[in-house]
Computed example of a mutant assay.
Amino acid sequence: MEIVIVALECDKDHTHMFLHALPHLSPSNIMAKIKGVTSKKLREEFPHLRHLPSLWTRSYFVSTEGNVSSETIKRYVEQQKTRG
């Protein structure tokens, strides 16, 4: 899909991602692919997850880079592991 993960941080119940994607890709298609692939991989690696009907909720938040720089967004995502 030609998506570049610029920054990624995971918490126990959510993930922050800063992605660069081609403009013809919709956020909903990108998230569907990410959730589908990660669900498949996690179920392969952790068989006890196979009995769950779903690993991810259908919800997500998407924002575009606009009034802030790429570096500001990247720094925000990377700092999520140190907050709290």
Rank of each mutant, 00 (worst) to 15 (best):
D13T: 11
W56G: 10
L55V: 01
W56Q: 00
K40H: 13
Y76F: 15
K33W: 07
K74E: 11
K41P: 02
T57Y: 10
T15Q: 11
T82R: 03
C10S: 14
S39C: 08
S59V: 04
E71G: 09
H20K: 14
H20F: 08
Q79M: 13
E71F: 05
K74V: 07
I3D: 05
S39A: 12
F18V: 02
I3V: 15
V77M: 04
P27C: 10
K41Y: 12
L8W: 10
K40E: 09
V68S: 15
G66T: 15
F61L: 04
L8V: 01
T82H: 10
E71D: 12
A32W: 11
L25F: 05
K33R: 15
T57W: 01
T72N: 06
V62C: 12
N67I: 06
L42I: 01
I3M: 15
M31K: 05
K12H: 11
K41G: 00
A32D: 06
I73Y: 11
E65H: 06
I34L: 15
E44I: 03
W56E: 00
I34Y: 13
F46S: 09
V68K: 15
N29T: 04
K81L: 03
R43E: 05
G66K: 11
F18H: 10
S54K: 07
A21M: 10
Y60K: 02
F46I: 14
Q79V: 05
Y60L: 08
K74D: 04
K12G: 01
I34V: 10
R43V: 06
E9N: 10
I30F: 09
S70F: 13
K12P: 03
F46P: 00
H14V: 07
T57S: 14
I3N: 06
H48G: 02
A32P: 00
V68N: 05
A21I: 13
G36C: 00
G36H: 04
W56Y: 13
